[in-house]
Design a protein around this nucleic acid. Structure first.
Lengths: 338, 338
DNA sequence: ATTCGAATTGACAGCGCTGTCAATTTGCGT
DNA sequence: ACGCAAATTGACAGCGCTGTCAATTCGAAT
């Protein structure tokens, strides 16, 4: 019966006549193993095609090589890009990603937090600072790194890493006013369930007001952000508020749809209406004209998240200068649409 | 010291004066537990805020509630959509997804297969039928469900589920010839690393030849598919092969870029050149004209993958009529670009 | 040679849970 | 009230690995 089962440490140990713990040490690259021993064990490992059972290892050592990651959505390309960044770093290590998708639902997020923590992950990354009190509790009791990502405007439970959406709103308000627009509107989507987009819009509105050009119109649509929605919402605004001369969109696909709409209707951009987006998605580069937007470092956020995580776990105990709260840079890309 | 550690089965058992195994049974909803006992245990669980340690459970029961999923990329929206579909089903169950990204690299995929299998997952889903021999070996020795997804043209190790890319190529060849195009070209990306795109193109070319309109030109670009690339490649073709009157693209973002290029250059679509894409991505709906494309059921593939998996694991032993090899339907969306 | 500390290896006892099978209790027909 | 099968509960022995600490070996200094 043993012959069909996966080989275990014990099998390897028997084969080369050493103790299990020694094999374990070789597998983990522990120090203080003689070269001779290492070779002997490695050849036995190869011969048996032994692969450690990570569950057993995780149980015994009381920490798994799992990083739990909770993102709100997979349909918005921003999150896959972050996951890609995380994976690019983790794939060089023994850590793997366990995924949860909250669908912008805090109750669901809380359930995911509880479930994922029951796997004893080595860390957990979750988008945003907003959680149910149950989830916050569970996260703060968790003894391994907790990383709240994508946002920089909040108070982390443990660690945080992301961009400042208030700063983004602020930047865009200044840009549009500088460019001389008078009647500025805003178009959002997802019914603003991502609290980050609320923070961005509020900062935008506040700064506009400070600059003496208060927001003229605001449309928050229920649907997910998409080019099609941008098209529709843009048409809707131009109909209802012909005086609006500039629009800031919650996401680049909205602005792309709006731009195509204007071009196809012969509406001159930016003369009749200026358009600006958010995120700096690749699709903005393929538009007939360069789109003004704010570029967010999505892949880089993923990379930084994974690096922060590795730093904390392999952690030279309360170490490096890495701050508890990392704000990553935004870049205003001034295109031809404003 | 116990007071700080997470409570265990033993703690719950002590608290309500029963054996650990009974608590275990209540937690797993096992049959043959009296109502009285269930209530007593549940209240103790609540009181202690007990959550089972899934690693221990997985080790003891020899199977974890983990589904390993290996996708080739996160930057192509197709794969996040599949993951979304998988998650939508799995999130209602105790199963979680562990993620691997192969970056279209079979060696990397093989390393991921080995690593993910060492977590004793309850199943594994991997994109495509092409693997290194080492990975194929490991997968066929794996005792739990192995699902090769995204493709239907191949011989599954265990189970497969996806769309037929040959059929897609075939369909599009017939469509373009039916519409009367004479000089047909093809534009690919990713250097055709996804073998599925090769299958699709070959079927396309073969069918065109059969219909007496052999392919006139083929450009396979090295870069990832993107609107920008579609724009460039389209310009490149029109320059080098002015006789080409129809183009089939490996992906919708390419066709979208090409369409915008043509429109901005005043090239009439489909009179001067017809354009067709593949996938049926949402962005095609927001283009100034409806794009001809083949719609693939991406989210649905994810859902079907997860359902197949659940069916096999909760499996009423070699059960339901679900075949070992499931081909999902494609739909030709005839737009205004052909 | 001898000694002592450092380097290397091993024994043992779990990690927290579940499979198996045995023990006990319950319910029901007569 | 009795007997028997079914329902309910428990004891025990791991799952495959690692932490801890003890035992052994080695090397260099004396």
């Amino acid at each position: 019966m043993r012959s069909f089962a996966r080989p275990t440490l014990k099998d390897v140990a028997h084969l080369c006549g050493v103790s299990e713990i020694t094999v374990s040490r070789v597998m983990r690259g522990a120090p203080n193993i003689s070269e001779k021993m290492r070779l002997k064990v490695e050849s036995a490992v190869e011969q048996l095609n032994y692969a450690p059972n990570r569950l057993a290892g995780a149980l015994a050592s009381r920490t798994s090589d799992l990083l739990a990651v909770i993102v709100p959505s997979m349909t918005h390309s921003v999150f896959p890009e972050v996951l890609d960044g995380i994976d690019s770093v983790l794939s060089q290590t023994r850590y793997r990603t366990v995924l949860g998708i909250s669908h912008y639902d805090l109750e669901h997020e809380a359930a995911l937090v509880h479930d994922l923590l029951s796997w004893n992950p080595a860390g957990i990354a979750v988008a945003g600072f907003e959680h149910t009190s149950g989830a916050s509790d569970a996260l703060s009791k968790f003894e391994n790194p907790v990383m709240e990502i994508m946002d920089a405007d909040g108070d982390p439970i443990d660690l945080s890493l992301g961009v400042s959406h208030s700063q983004a709103g602020h930047m865009m308000a200044e840009h549009l006013v500088e460019r001389g627009y008078e009647n500025i509107g805003y178009i959002g989507a997802w019914n603003e369930r991502p609290s980050r987009s609320v923070k961005r819009r509020i900062a935008f509105e506040n700064r506009l007001a400070e600059l003496g050009k208060p927001l003229r119109c605001r449309i928050i649509r229920e649907e997910d952000s998409s080019m099609l929605l941008g098209r529709e919402a843009c048409a809707q605004v131009m109909e209802a508020h012909p005086e609006v001369d500039a629009l800031f969109f919650a996401n680049d696909d909205l602005v792309a749809g709006a731009l195509l709409y204007c071009l196809s209707k012969g509406i001159s951009v930016p003369d009749q209406i200026a358009l600006a987006g958010f995120n700096g998605l690749p699709l903005t580069e393929a538009m007939p004209m360069k789109v003004t937007t704010i570029k967010t470092p999505r892949y880089e956020m993923g990379v930084a998240t994974a690096e922060l995580f590795l730093d904390k776990v392999s952690g030279s105990t309360e170490n490096t200068g890495l701050s508890r709260k990392l704000s990553m840079p935004l870049e205003l890309l001034h295109g031809e649409t404003t």
